[in-house]
Design a protein around this nucleic acid. Structure first.
Lengths: 349, 349
DNA sequence: TTTGGCACTCAAGAACCAAGAGTGCTAATT
DNA sequence: AATTAGCACTCTTGGTTCTTGAGTGCCAAA
């Protein structure tokens, strides 16, 4: 059945209207708002057919129809047309993102705020998964006796560090010796291939006692492992309370309850990211029941990736009610993503 | 009027009952639940008097009484008795805090989660204000041509850093020269006394061209200024939706709307912290209208401080409905605060 | 100062009703 | 075979009315 099939036009009209008005749409309203060259009775027949196909449903007997999950799915897959943001919308977003400080952490958090504000829904930005990025530099820096700073430079210019404890009597020179030999042997290795054993073998030929060495290596190891920790910026939860879709307290409770576990959401994103088939700038769209997270049954979840350098990427997306303006939201995400990419590129030269 | 005044006992009973039941309490209920040796008519007279004093009020003519803001105030100031947490409650909190990683940022975030979970309300933990702490060490570390890491060690063992841009052709040796002379002259200075001018004068006698020097100094300066940035961990917003006090959507919206601006909340805490009269481990309690933040009119706000070293302190507290178990909440904050203090001490040796 | 008694108030819930939007189905029309 | 007009039927929504009961304030007596 083609796009020109009237039934599909009806579905599109129903989705559009329902997104706008948040009211089940009936045959009369459909005729009025869209210029279908047929009578309401005909549309009623079409709607009955669409219902039989599982694309729309009615909340109760004497109400209009609303799209089902599968209806939305059909809509985003075949019917929706994505158009550019208006100049003023782009301007607005640009301004807000540009006025933030030039640091990675801040940039992402700020971008998340901007996105949630622009969409009026919940935004999600995750720092890149660094497990596959490689270690370019590693330095151990004495801060005071017993305390050192591990500084790691990863591919794509990301810098991470952590304060660690070391034996009190270790001298800066000894520390430098360890640091240098570790760096030499780990140079270029992906983070997730570094193990405690890799580390141990890297410092074979020093004359520092094993027991001391081991403590330092262990601390270094934890620092490395911690470097690929994911940060999650989930912003705008309160926006959901303003939407009529969550005016029932129970729904709002469930939703915010799950969103408060940002680790859970991040884990879910990583999972669906693995199943992804398309390229990097395609969009993952999950609708209603398709989302395997309790409490998000009435939501849709749209994510995509932004790039840090050529190989590393993080995620950005939006969580909102199923009844959202998919096309608009996607172009908003897209523009914010574009701004992030641009800014990151500038930071890394 | 003393504590033994029956009217005060009545007030206490009303607060206790209202906190428990969330229902306006009437004279009959009062007689039943507390063994007042008088009749309900007498209590009615007392209650009328308490109302005239502005300590309680009725939602409408034919309902029982609820405490007014001033009533709660009287309660926390003179009537409330704080008792220890039970062993199992302490155990629970201890366990959850102990199982988190030993790093400052994580510790505080985790503590905030624990506190919000324990109280079932919103918890607030702020990183220490570092403006008054002093700079013990400052190092500029070459990462790659054009990029350096500024590492700062502050009093109380806090380490902060930031990646900055530097001129491409600057050599590690030149960088070290700048770094050393800056460190020498800033050593021991409180962060908030460091200005761009202080920095400029500190490197008078180098032979590096001024224009280059200025860029590096400026970047260093921004790094220093950014070091005293405040992080705010506001957790458990979703808990508020479960409380009957915020079952009206409007209230919940207002509340979460304001809480989403964590900067605003943090700013407010800093403000009231300045007005504080008592010692460090006293509690600031703000009730209802006393809180100068839109949307928190139905809340109470309890904060206190935790210590990092001898001079630096951060804030920890709870935001919940006015109708909260003040005594319990205070002991919960107190215990979490104690655990934080302890852990921080251990991290710093 | 305390108490019993009583009239009064008011929110909350139940029951009922009317209006209106929307449907499905049938029979006629193109 | 597709479309349409017409109509009976369903069900939500909102308004009105009534009842119930908890709670008060106040008066007069102890």
């Amino acid at each position: 059945m083609g796009l020109n099939d009237r039934k599909m036009q009806v579905l599109q009209a129903i989705v559009d209207d329902y997104v706008n008005t948040n009211e089940p749409v009936g045959s009369k309203a459909l005729i009025e708002r869209h210029k279908f060259p047929v009578s309401s009775a005909t549309l009623r027949n079409d709607m009955a057919e669409l219902e039989r196909m599982g694309l729309i449903e009615k909340p109760h007997t004497s109400a209009g129809r609303i799209p089902s999950d599968r209806g939305y799915r059909e809509y985003v897959d075949s019917l929706m047309r994505i158009d550019q943001l208006s100049a003023s919308e782009r301007e607005e977003i640009s301004r807000k993102i540009d006025e933030c400080l030039d640091e990675a952490g801040d940039l992402l958090k700020n971008a998340s705020s901007v996105l949630s504000e622009a969409t009026g829904m919940v935004s999600l930005v995750m720092t890149p998964r660094l497990a596959e990025s490689s270690l370019l530099q590693l330095k151990l820096l004495m801060i005071e006796p017993g305390k050192a700073l591990v500084v790691m430079v990863l591919s794509a210019g990301v810098v991470k560090d952590k304060v660690v404890r070391i034996p009190n009597f270790l001298t800066p020179d000894q520390l430098k010796e360890i640091s240098d030999s570790v760096e030499r042997s780990l140079n270029g290795k992906p983070l997730d291939e570094i193990t405690l054993i890799t580390l141990a073998t890297s410092v074979k030929e020093t004359q520092i006692p094993d027991s001391i060495l081991n403590q330092v290596l262990y601390e270094t190891y934890t620092a490395i492992k911690q470097a690929d920790r994911l940060d999650v910026f989930l912003e705008g939860e309160h926006n959901m309370l303003k939407l009529p879709d969550f005016s029932e307290l129970r729904r709002a409770q469930n939703l915010l309850g799950t969103l408060s576990h940002d680790g859970m959401v991040a884990g879910y994103v990583n999972e669906i990211e693995k199943e992804k088939t398309g390229g990097d700038d395609t969009y993952m769209i999950r609708i209603g029941q398709e989302i395997a997270l309790e409490g998000l049954e009435d939501c849709s979840f749209i994510t995509t990736t932004y790039k840090v350098g050529d190989t590393i990427s993080g995620n950005i997306g939006v969580i909102g009610p199923k009844r959202m303006d998919y096309s608009k939201v996607i172009s908003q995400i897209d523009f914010v993503r574009y701004k992030i990419n641009e800014k990151i590129k500038k930071i890394n030269e």
